[in-house]
Design a protein around this nucleic acid. Structure first.
Length: 746
RNA sequence: GCGCGAGUGGUGUAAUGGUAAACACGUACGAUUGAGGUUCGUAUGCCGCAAGGCGUGGAGGUUCAAGUCCUCUCUCGCGCACCA
């Protein structure tokens, strides 16, 4: 038999699978559907990195296992391609962002294929494709139509380096999330999406979904609901979560830039006393009412403030009832979403400003903000010479007069296009819906197809609908707040309009841990420590890379890349390759009882480990199995084929080669997933460990249902045990059949 | 400060309360080869000649039996944070 040569067999099977379009799916299958999804990538110029490989391989394994289990599996791929890095690169190289994006996507596609990913390429989407962003714009107009998109002059977070307004969510510790520059506040008219209207639904929806607890906590924290009361102190309304402490309130604080007494006094409605109103920095203008009551005895910060400025402190007072002096309300930390960006490389916001001059009575003469009619969508990004953003905060689009100046769709008068674009979160807020019906040019997706792939919340669960939403969604830890919240918001809004069938888009969410560079640092181009998967594929093969990334450690945990450990999975594949020669030709062997137990327990363990994303132990179980088969004199074909089928999702190329070389005409990836037989999991014999006073002193092999009396007779006959019992009195004996005997002596 | 996780060999890590370190990497020795190692084999927690003892961040506790359960404590990571 020839040697294992991934360089030869991997491209061979990749071509074969592509030729047969093996992984394309349609909605007319009699099988139950399964929608597995991994976050689509941003196609950067650096190509795929090892972190991508981890998440995509995991979902590829899940998808392949589901196919073998008989599901109609949709495992789609696409590109989230609008965004700053490409735009900045375009500015630097003076090339159109669309060209750069196309090249990068082509590179990504080539890399994905070289990894053996079983994507349905016929469903590929790209957020920068006008056929796609036409619907992103259409969805925006739905928000506008229902009053959830609005324009407001607000102080926005302005990044002076990127020259871009940031959503609150994109500001970390007062700095730009992307470049770390200190963010400034700038007053600007911005498009806003009223996500706060969905705060409650986003919160309560978390009860319906299967997300890791910490992800739910992060979403809850971000929404930040607190129940409290609004209470009037004369004309100052305050918000408090502790209205019961009102009799201890000795001052009121309103939001201000510095700590100072306002000179004003108000009446505490509970004590009827006049108390001073102060201004202080520690009170936020944009939370609650921007004013609080100061209760030094019950609040640490109020105490510090009172001590600092010698304000009165009342320690003993009677607690009040919750709603005795105000009314119960609920406040959120969540803010409306700043939805406009003053950049080029994003979806143009599809509205037109009609600017007929104002009438003599001062009212606007024009039609105001007019949505672009559906027939005129998409509003295409125009060709532009200069992508450089401006210091004034205007989009580069503003300087393209022939694009900006249009006739008002309503009155035909002079009007100007909106020049702001959408944030890079827009396209990714609904892409999982588009995958269900990616070529539809009449709708963003048809209800019929959405019902098939997303399930129908209004109908009982059936074979064809395994519940609500994407069945399994994996992605990076860094997206468990923003992207998850935004896309849940869009989906809930569309659900309320009756345009999607389920209220929660993702039934189950998991996250993979980061892969760090050797040394424990984050991989980054600037540090020059990025590992390129292409190089690993070239020297070890895609199957080895996939296996290594699954084997390296717990899936959800951050882990260091270790080049020298790659050889382990490669050796394992070599071993499996060579095992084939141990199947005797022309004679039938049958599997012994030990062999059966091992085979069935391996099937059970590998199956369960994959479901729980314990890929590392799934691989080690396969290694144990291969090691055991290697020690056999001869291997029964069924044993070997079971190993291959269990390994197929991890190492799709090599298992396909071996499978077909065994004389099978069809693909291993269409074979049924092995099932285990409960009755074969335990063999009749086990090693019983013998302890004296809790220390291991010996062991023997016995039937697992050996009786207690018999077991102790056996123990007494063991010389290595006898010596520990000489001259001692046996105080207690413990017997766990099939496991352990413990003898407690004086 | 509050809320979650996690601390185990030289390394990555594994262990339904029941043989701690499975599976790998590395290392040592040996084999194969003209040579090489992405080949094969054996060994490999620590102390000890041995008998044996000691070992899962630290200190206690529960139990016949604790990495696992309980209490306290230290360290690291993550999330939230002048949010009233």
């Amino acid at each position: 038999m020839n040697e294992y040569d991934p360089k030869e067999i991997e491209p061979k099977w990749q071509k074969e699978w592509e030729k047969k379009r093996s992984y394309d799916v349609a909605e007319d299958s009699p099988k139950p559907k399964y929608y597995s999804l991994m976050e689509f990538p941003y196609p950067s110029g650096d190509g795929l990195h090892t972190g991508h490989v981890r998440g995509y391989t995991a979902m590829d394994i899940i998808s392949r296992k589901r196919r073998m289990e008989g599901y109609n599996v949709m495992f789609p791929i696409g590109y989230d391609a609008f965004g700053l890095p490409t735009e900045n690169y375009a500015i630097k190289t003076k090339r159109p962002p669309a060209d750069i994006t196309r090249e990068n996507c082509e590179n990504f596609e080539k890399q994905f294929k070289s990894l053996g990913m079983s994507f349905d390429w016929s469903r590929e989407v790209n957020t920068t494709d006008p056929k796609y962003y036409k619907w992103t714009q259409w969805l925006f107009l739905k928000f506008l139509e229902h009053g959830l998109a609005y324009k407001a002059k607000i102080p926005i977070n302005w990044c002076p380096k990127d020259k871009i307004g940031l959503a609150n969510e994109e500001v970390v510790d007062g700095k730009c999330e992307r470049c770390g520059t200190l963010v400034e506040l700038k007053e600007k008219e911005q498009w806003m999406l009223a996500i706060t209207k969905y705060a409650d639904k986003l919160l309560s929806g978390l009860d319906e979904v299967d997300y890791p607890e910490r992800v739910k906590v992060q979403q809850e924290n971000w929404i930040g609901r607190s129940e409290g009361a609004l209470i009037r102190f004369d004309d100052v309304e305050i918000f408090t979560t502790r209205p019961d402490t009102i009799r201890g309130a000795t001052f009121v604080v309103v939001s201000g830039k510095a700590d100072k007494f306002t000179g004003k006094y108000v009446t505490n409605p509970a004590t009827k006393e006049k108390i001073p109103v102060w201004e202080a920095e520690y009170v936020y203008s944009d939370y609650g009412t921007g004013a609080i009551m100061g209760v030094p005895a019950d609040d640490e910060r109020d105490m510090l403030f009172a001590e600092k400025y010698s304000l009165p402190i009342v320690r003993d007072y009677t607690k009040a009832g919750f709603e005795d002096f105000g009314k119960k309300v609920i406040k959120y930390k969540l803010r409306d979403w700043v939805f406009s960006r003053q950049r080029y490389w994003g979806e143009p916001i599809p509205v037109i400003h009609c600017d007929k001059p104002a009438r003599p009575d001062g009212r606007s003469g024009g039609c105001g903000i007019v949505p672009v009619p559906e027939k005129d969508l998409p509003v295409l990004l125009p060709e532009v010479k200069n992508y450089q953003p401006t210091d004034t905060g205007e989009s580069p689009l503003a300087s393209i007069e022939e694009w900006v100046n249009v006739a008002c769709p309503k009155c035909g008068g002079k009007a100007r296009r909106e020049t702001d674009t959408m944030p890079n979160w827009a396209g990714s807020s609904w892409y999982f819906l588009r995958y269900c019906d990616p070529h539809n040019d009449k709708e963003f997706a048809s209800m019929e197809k959405l019902k098939y792939w997303m399930g129908d919340a209004g109908l009982p669960r059936t074979e064809r609908s395994s519940g609500t939403g994407v069945d399994w969604y994996n992605g990076g830890m860094e997206h468990t707040v923003l992207h998850l919240l935004y896309s849940r918001f869009w989906n809930k809004f569309l659900f309320d309009l009756g345009l999607v069938p389920v209220s929660e888009p993702y039934k189950k969410r998991t996250s993979h841990g980061l892969i760090l560079a050797e040394g424990g640092e984050k991989m980054s181009k600037s540090k020059g420590n990025v590992v390129n998967p292409d190089a690993i594929i070239k020297s070890f093969g895609a199957d080895t890379l996939r296996l290594y990334e699954m084997f390296m450690g717990p899936f959800e945990q951050a882990i260091e890349w270790n080049e020298s450990s790659l050889i382990g999975p490669r050796r394992f594949l070599e071993k499996v390759w060579k095992l084939k020669a141990k199947i005797p030709k022309g004679q039938t062997l049958s599997i012994g009882s030990q062999g059966l137990t091992l085979m069935h327990s391996t099937i059970k363990k590998v199956s369960e480990d994959i479901e729980a994303m314990r890929f590392n132990t799934a691989v080690s179980t396969l290694m144990i199995y291969a090691n055991a088969l290697e020690k056999h004199g001869g291997i029964v074909q069924e044993e070997y084929e079971t190993l291959l089928r269990l390994l197929a999702p991890f190492a799709p190329h090599m298992t396909e080669e071996l499978w077909q070389s065994l004389g099978h005409a069809d693909s291993i990836h269409t074979q049924p997933w092995p099932k285990y037989d409960q009755s074969k999991l335990k063999s009749g014999e086990a090693t019983i460990v013998v302890q004296v006073n809790g220390r291991v002193r010996g062991k023997f092999v016995a039937s697992i249902d050996m009786g207690e009396a018999e077991a102790f007779e056996k123990v007494k006959s063991l010389p290595e045990i006898q010596k520990w019992l000489v001259g001692k009195e046996v105080l207690k004996r413990v017997y766990v059949p099939g496991k352990v005997i413990n003898i407690v002596t004086s």
